[in-house]
Simulated assay, not measured.
Amino acid sequence: MVDDDTHAGTVLRDAMRADLMTAMKARAAETVAALRAGLAAIDNAEAVDVPDREGAHSGAAQQSVIAGATTGLGSSEVSRRDLTHADIRAVLADLMAEYRAEADRYAALNRPEAADQLRRQAAALSRYV
């Protein structure tokens, strides 16, 4: 069952993907880069934790020729985390903060063009937060 907050997160991600296609058609490189990075950050946040080495090698898997290999159809598939709308917004806010911090570093190194580019990418993500 999907609750309303998780559904809102899916709607937000779908909007980002639609905007990515629009930006690609418009050849807006900075917007494309920002949206790709945002979607990748969301995908990374959905990834599940990797089990510890001891838990990964138990039972029949220990006799496998390949270390850590599993057998059977779908035996290595794990469902991803369901992020809420608030979770996705937090991921994007962290990415924007990272862009702004890097922009400040570039500005301190007398690289105003690179700093401005990162600030524009952060601004492109701000409409989703």
Rank of each mutant, 00 (worst) to 15 (best):
V2D: 08
V2N: 06
D3R: 02
D4G: 03
D4S: 11
T6S: 03
A8F: 02
A8R: 12
G9Y: 02
T10S: 07
T10V: 04
T10G: 14
L12E: 04
L12M: 09
M16P: 01
R17N: 09
A18T: 14
A18H: 08
A18F: 03
T22E: 10
T22A: 15
R27I: 02
A28P: 01
A29D: 05
E30Y: 06
T31Q: 15
T31H: 13
T31D: 13
T31N: 11
L35V: 09
R36Q: 15
R36D: 14
R36V: 13
G38I: 03
G38T: 04
L39M: 10
A40R: 15
A40H: 15
D43P: 03
A45W: 06
E46K: 14
E46F: 01
V48Y: 01
V50F: 09
V50P: 00
P51T: 01
P51H: 00
D52C: 07
D52G: 11
D52F: 05
D52E: 07
R53P: 00
R53F: 13
R53C: 00
A56R: 14
H57F: 03
A60C: 01
A60G: 05
A60T: 11
Q62W: 07
Q62V: 11
Q62G: 00
Q63L: 11
S64R: 05
S64D: 07
S64F: 04
V65N: 03
V65S: 08
I66W: 02
A67F: 12
A67W: 11
A69H: 07
L73P: 10
L73E: 14
G74I: 06
G74C: 08
S76K: 08
E77F: 13
S79N: 12
R80G: 00
R81K: 14
R81C: 00
D82L: 06
D82E: 13
D82N: 11
D82S: 12
L83F: 02
T84W: 00
A86N: 07
R89M: 05
A90P: 00
A90R: 14
A90K: 12
V91G: 01
V91W: 08
A93V: 09
A93C: 00
A93S: 13
D94V: 00
L95V: 03
Y99G: 01
R100G: 01
R100W: 07
A101D: 04
A101M: 09
A103W: 06
A103M: 04
A103Q: 06
A103P: 05
A103C: 08
D104T: 12
R105M: 10
R105I: 08
A107W: 05
L109W: 09
N110I: 05
R111A: 14
P112W: 09
P112I: 07
E113L: 12
E113H: 08
A115R: 07
D116S: 13
L118Q: 07
L118F: 09
R119T: 10
R119A: 05
R120Q: 12
A122G: 15
A123Y: 08
A124V: 05
L125D: 07
Y128S: 03
V129Q: 11
